[in-house]
């Protein structure tokens, strides 16, 4: 079952190059002034780091993932000041709270994927969102249930972060070179990340930044800093300088 998907990814990888894609959006009328003493609740970032096999398979790597997690956490801490507001980690949840949190993490992932798939990038359009796209309206919500999340009562906004990195293995890179000789494009590596800000009172999605080709090697300290900067550079109210495009 798993490998049917992988077979599909192999054939896709050999034929179509993924275009570098980045976009972010802010809900209309939403402004978060710097130093406005708002509290931002950071939910446990989802980080997966691994290698990409010659055939395009994701090979999970525990050591890289642990490194990336630690690095990203350190970088977040460092940028906290520049975000203009206080960022606190969400408390550990138990029992019903934990189940509620799990449901909302999954919901956030689903909603963000919908934004990315149907609003951010050209191509797929949900019929109900066509008008929104033309008038630059950004209107998505997780529902009022977010107010009940653990830690939500003492905070104003919730921040979700997702990262998935697959570094091209040596085999994949060699394949890429040979494929280029044959005039076929084979991509090596996959670096997807997105971050979103949710209003913890109303559940509205206030800001979302998605990038299907992120920079920065999260296994390294400097790389993680660059990654976090890219994720948060358009963060409302932040004064993080924009990374220079490479």
């Amino acid at each position: 079952m798993i490998w049917l998907a992988i077979v599909a990814s192999v054939s896709a990888a050999v034929t179509a190059p993924a275009a570098a894609q980045e976009r972010s959006a802010v809900k209309q009328g939403f402004e978060l002034a710097a130093k406005s003493n708002k509290k931002i609740l950071l939910f446990r970032p989802a980080v997966r780091v691994g290698a990409q096999s010659t055939g395009g398979l994701f090979e999970p790597n525990a050591e890289w993932t642990e490194q990336a997690k630690a690095n990203i956490e350190a970088a977040l801490h460092q940028f906290q000041e520049s975000l203009g507001n206080e960022v606190v980690a969400a408390p550990e949840a138990y029992g019903d709270d934990a189940r509620n949190l799990h449901e909302h993490m999954a919901l956030f992932a689903a909603v963000s994927q919908s934004v990315i798939e149907y609003q951010f990038f050209v191509g797929n359009r949900l019929p109900t969102k066509k008008r929104d796209n033309k008038t630059q309206v950004f209107d998505w919500s997780l529902g009022k249930g977010v107010a009940g999340l653990p830690g939500a009562a003492d905070a104003d906004y919730g921040l979700f972060i997702y990262n998935r990195d697959a570094y091209g293995s040596t085999g994949r890179k060699v394949l890429q070179v040979f494929a280029a000789m044959g005039g076929v494009s084979v991509t090596s590596g996959e670096h997807v990340g997105y971050a979103g800000l949710v209003d913890l009172k109303t559940g509205e999605l206030l800001w979302l930044n998605a990038d299907a080709a992120m920079g920065g090697d999260v296994r390294e300290k400097d790389g993680s800093e660059k990654r976090v900067r890219q994720l948060l550079e358009d963060f409302p109210g932040s004064d993080i300088p924009k990374a220079v495009a490479e």
Partner: peptide, 17 residues
Amino acid sequence: LRSGTDVLAWTAVLVNL
């Protein structure tokens, strides 16, 4: 699975050559 897809990826590229 990895070895299988590796073989397929190489075959696909070589066939294209």
